[in-house]
Design a protein around this nucleic acid. Structure first.
Length: 105
DNA sequence: GTGGTGACTGCCA
DNA sequence: ATGGCAGCCACCA
């Protein structure tokens, strides 16, 4: 990982144990990392992340949608493709039914 | 030190 | 159902 910070390492640690074919929300990652209410920090941490071994694509927002990146990169498209490869099904509105795919540790 | 920004969330109209 | 808004806190200029 690119940043030397315990906080970020905790976030990445949580993300890396999301099982294949499941998703989780920014808020839940924050909660599991011991900082409830700091979903925005999780988003910031992921934007700074540049490590292919971390399954960042399994993190979506609280509505089950893929959050668009500010840098205009193709990340959001890649995210959807990778999730579909894992068998995560999107509904007609581009959202993931969280009742079905949300990771419950 | 100060102020603006963001891969967010929950509340309210 | 959708859209706006305040709160959140690390980072950068």
């Amino acid at each position: 990982m690119s940043i030397n910070s315990e906080t970020y390492r905790d976030i990445y640690g949580v993300v890396s144990r999301i099982p294949r074919g499941r998703v989780t929300t920014y808020g839940q990652v924050a909660c599991l990392a011991g900082m409830p209410g700091r979903a925005r920090l999780v988003g910031y941490a992921l934007s700074a992340l540049n490590d292919p071994s971390i399954p960042w694509h399994r993190v979506v927002n609280a509505r089950g949608e893929i959050s668009q990146r500010s840098d205009g990169g193709p990340g959001d498209t890649v995210q959807r493709l990778r999730l579909e490869e894992e068998g995560v099904h999107f509904d007609g509105q581009g959202r993931i039914p969280l009742d079905r795919y949300l990771w419950r540790p």
